[in-house]
């Protein structure tokens, strides 16, 4: 009768255990690989750009002389676009989410709308650029103004906002609306006074995150033909403009010719990332402040 060889078993066990710990180390390394790259990227950008980030750079006009160039125009352009994007996406996103979640009959129509939104979220941003170019810039003959850029980016982030608003609406406990109906409130009264206020923190968080995605978008703007020329500061929705990411794009391309432009691009990236960080912090604060409620 053969017996199991204790040595053999021991050997096999220890190889398996060793394999496990090697794999664990490898998996951990992969996990922090992305983070290491992130740190390198940030350190690199900051070390290149921080020296150029002064008052003159923040408030100055665009200039062919790197020493004098500033990003006020691009910053204003981005700010004006945000003024278009915020109301438009908010109305489109929240309105659609309310309709799908609370009004649409479950079934065919709802699933068509839902599938459509999922597909829209997967469309490359550059395709939205072509849509904006065709509809807003050419067909409606707006030209490459703030309004056209803002509307294009609004459509781009609309699916993101719809999905997060839907989640926020779904998270409102059923009992709240049932209690409201029980008191004799109508559907819209219930939505306006009970469901929306309860879902608002979630919706706001989603909106701000979507907005932060929008201000970093470059590809659609390149298609719209947004320039980075010496144009006057935009003063309204119908002015030509340039935006922060466009400015970074052109400076990066120019870096081949003059090295200083790389530093300008890095400094502009710091401003852009700072703006996004600010928006994200606001979103996190809103979420933390209101999360405990319900």
């Amino acid at each position: 009768m053969e017996h199991m060889n204790a040595n053999q078993v021991q050997n096999k066990m220890s190889t398996r255990i060793r394999k496990n710990s090697i794999a664990k180390g490898l998996f951990f390394l992969s996990t922090i690989f992305g983070l290491i790259i992130l740190v390198i990227l940030l350190v690199r950008v900051f070390s290149q750009g921080i020296g150029w980030l002064d008052w003159n750079f923040l408030t100055g006009r665009l200039s062919t002389d790197p020493e004098k160039a500033g990003i006020m125009g691009a910053f204003l352009g981005t700010a004006w676009m945000m003024l278009v994007i915020i109301p438009v996406t908010f109305i489109l996103g929240v309105g659609t989410a309310i309709y799908i979640e609370l009004y649409a009959k479950k079934g065919r129509v709802q699933s068509i709308i839902q599938t459509n939104i999922a597909n829209l979220a997967g469309v490359p941003s550059i395709v939205y650029g072509l849509l904006g170019l065709t509809i807003f810039v050419r067909l409606m003959d707006l030209g490459n103004i703030v309004l056209a850029g803002g509307l294009t980016l609004s459509l781009l982030i609309m699916p993101i906002l719809i999905v997060s608003a839907q989640e926020a609406l779904r998270a409102v406990p059923q009992e709240l609306s049932e209690a409201s109906y029980g008191m004799g409130a109508t559907k819209w009264q219930t939505i306006k006074k009970i469901i929306l206020p309860a879902a608002l923190p979630g919706i706001l968080t989603g909106s701000i995150l979507a907005l932060s995605r929008a201000i970093g978008e470059t590809a659609p703007l390149t298609v719209l033909g947004i320039p980075a020329l010496l144009i006057p500061f935009p003063e309204g929705l119908f002015d030509s403009f340039t935006a922060l990411p466009m400015q970074i794009y052109y400076w990066t391309l120019d870096a081949v010719l003059t090295e200083e432009y790389a530093y300008l691009a890095a400094a502009a990236i710091i401003v852009l990332l700072g703006l996004m960080l600010l928006l994200n912090s606001i979103a996190i604060i809103i979420r933390n402040k209101f999360q405990q409620r319900l």
Binding site: T31, I32, G34, L35, I37, L38, I40, L41, R44, V45, Q48, S212, R213, G216, E217, T218, A219, P245, I248, Y249, T252, A255, A262, A265, A266, I269, L272, L273, M276, N280
Partner: peptide, 24 residues
């Protein structure tokens, strides 16, 4: 801790990655 940090990576605008690819 790690998951939100990784998601920062997905939140960096692509133009910044472009700059990083080209200059670094």
């Amino acid at each position: 801790t790690l998951k939100p940090l990784l998601e920062v990576l997905a939140g960096i605008p692509t133009i910044v990655y472009g700059f990083f690819a080209f200059t670094f």
